[in-house]
Design a protein around this nucleic acid. Sequence first.
DNA 1: CATGAATGAGGATTCATTCAT
DNA 2: GATGAATGAATCCTCATTCAT
Lengths: 203, 203, 203, 203
Amino acid sequence: MSTTEKRHIDPDRALVRRKQVLDAAAACFGRSGFHGASMAEISKAAGMSAGHIYNYFDSKDAIIAAFVEQNVERVSQLMRDLEQQADPLQSMVDDAPRHVREHLDPNTWPLALEISAEAARNPKIAEVVRDADVRARVQFRAILKSSRERHGLAVDSDTLDGLLDAMISLFQGLDVRVVHNPNVNEPALARYMGIAMKAMLFS
Amino acid sequence: MSTTEKRHIDPDRALVRRKQVLDAAAACFGRSGFHGASMAEISKAAGMSAGHIYNYFDSKDAIIAAFVEQNVERVSQLMRDLEQQADPLQSMVDDAPRHVREHLDPNTWPLALEISAEAARNPKIAEVVRDADVRARVQFRAILKSSRERHGLAVDSDTLDGLLDAMISLFQGLDVRVVHNPNVNEPALARYMGIAMKAMLFS
Amino acid sequence: MSTTEKRHIDPDRALVRRKQVLDAAAACFGRSGFHGASMAEISKAAGMSAGHIYNYFDSKDAIIAAFVEQNVERVSQLMRDLEQQADPLQSMVDDAPRHVREHLDPNTWPLALEISAEAARNPKIAEVVRDADVRARVQFRAILKSSRERHGLAVDSDTLDGLLDAMISLFQGLDVRVVHNPNVNEPALARYMGIAMKAMLFS
Amino acid sequence: MSTTEKRHIDPDRALVRRKQVLDAAAACFGRSGFHGASMAEISKAAGMSAGHIYNYFDSKDAIIAAFVEQNVERVSQLMRDLEQQADPLQSMVDDAPRHVREHLDPNTWPLALEISAEAARNPKIAEVVRDADVRARVQFRAILKSSRERHGLAVDSDTLDGLLDAMISLFQGLDVRVVHNPNVNEPALARYMGIAMKAMLFS
DNA sequence: CATGAATGAGGATTCATTCAT
DNA sequence: GATGAATGAATCCTCATTCAT
């Protein structure tokens, strides 16, 4: 998954332009979805002619791919943050409310859903998403392993596999949940999320 | 629940035709997504001319809406099944592996995701989905309430709110998870799902 | 090179429509060239919406290919006519004026040129054109061989090769010539064409 | 002959630049045709920015026109060469094989065809091409006249008209021929070309 | 002189929808 | 009821051309 698509004389300016487009795309994608957002819509939001966008991206699909790549990188950042914690297991439980709040943020979840839905049928996007997932799981697994060892808990492969995916599933479910129930009782939900996490992490 | 779309001479035949279309649509939507599936594709799958479909549905959006409505009803059926159990709380925990398996079935999750993503941007679909969710939560809440009372557990409103959404979130997350990690370790995941559910349901 | 592109319930009507499009295309191609003619232009000339044309042709390129195929078939017809003659060699010489006149017809040559120019860079068209040329040469060669044998002239392979291509070249040159000199002195030209042909055919 | 396109500080440098562009254009036009070659392609081949080309040419059409003009001048050079010969008629016949070889050269004929095809629909190009043709015919006619007089052959206007166009036609046909039959038997063809030329020139 | 970023009109193509039969 | 021919608006994308630097 390439980082720079075209050669430009001034790479900084080009990067700014690419960001402009991706930011505009984020807004449009959130509003209308990948397929609902037209290049015209995106170009207007980016303050740039539609034709010019093609100096920075090969196609609309390339914009979608770049956008997905960018979004998918945020998970790795999360992992790095978690790594810094003294006791990651406890931190996760303690930070549950914050993470819940973030996952319920209406600027985030429509895009997360859109990405997953797209990945479900677009193999190119699926690849991006799955590669990122592999990387994130590797990081997460290492964190869980060392933390659990310190707590004297099991760290066999199956255990880590299950814990890993169950934990992530719990959070990814939030993005879906809020679509179906926008009036979710956040504190109450966070409390139970904490209960579930604690049970899993320390079993 | 907007069922009466058109007037027909023979309502039974009309119903058969509508079902034909919806079944075809299900296949096409699963393969190509709501926007990727064309009316031509659907009409071919339905063994019916494209034009004729418009005798049963006002528009493609109407087909999507009807399809979503139909899909969303399956949750209610689940609730009714659960209601029949002697000890629903324990049944849920015990049945975790089966539910996990079902949610990881590749015939199901792409559509679940597609529906959620569509609901995130199409208000009409959002309404359908949210109405169904309200109804499902009412049913689920009643089941949880009576079961937990029998177990001497708290049944205050906040508790039920949180438990409800956390439980559903956990399962809805599976549909997303499998997209990102198609090689998920199912038994291991099911085990931890069970742990999380048990902790939540009996807290 | 396929003959029927799409399936239609009424093949006759479809054929009429295809012909409509090809006739319109002929006019537009003659006026503006393959690339200069837009689908909008063609559709207007065909009395049919641009979108509808795609029910009969896969793409604009397919229209070009079909058009070329159709044009290229006329040479075979010429060969069949020639075959009927009692003394093909003499007929060719005698009919020189008529053939010259036909090649100078302004409805014909722009398209012949356009086809050759397109074949020079479009491999798909080149194939069509070359296949037709092979077939035409096979027919022409047989005619020349038997006629020359009857006249007691050489019919070795090289002789036929050279005679063949030189004869065709002479006529194909006319299409080019008339572009460069639209005021060509037709009878005078025809006379010298006859001289050249006679010399070649009977050497 | 419209040479003075723009005013430049250093006319020599400008001429060099124009040549750069025309050479690049020749390569691109040969590869992709007039319409297939983009300004971006040409500018890259010319080692010059697309924008800068517009300091030397008013438009892409102006480049095409200049390119055609330049190409079309080569015929005059041929005439001058021919003029130098002791017996031009015999020289033509003798040099037939060389001329055939040159006309079959794949670096030449695609452009000749492209030019003729363009002239068939672009009046501006048609004018350039026809003007050049008039001049070439004047030169050729003078050569033929004096040579034929020396040989005691007819030199009336009609005779020269016919001979002229038939001779040129024969050669222009080669450019077309080779597109349709790339495996042309060159020596055999040259032999028959010689036969035809001899018959015409000395009749 | 020279660049290449930026524009915007125009092109091919798709597709939901209509309607005569 | 049922067809599929027909429409036309909308979409992505290309490219000649301009212009600030």
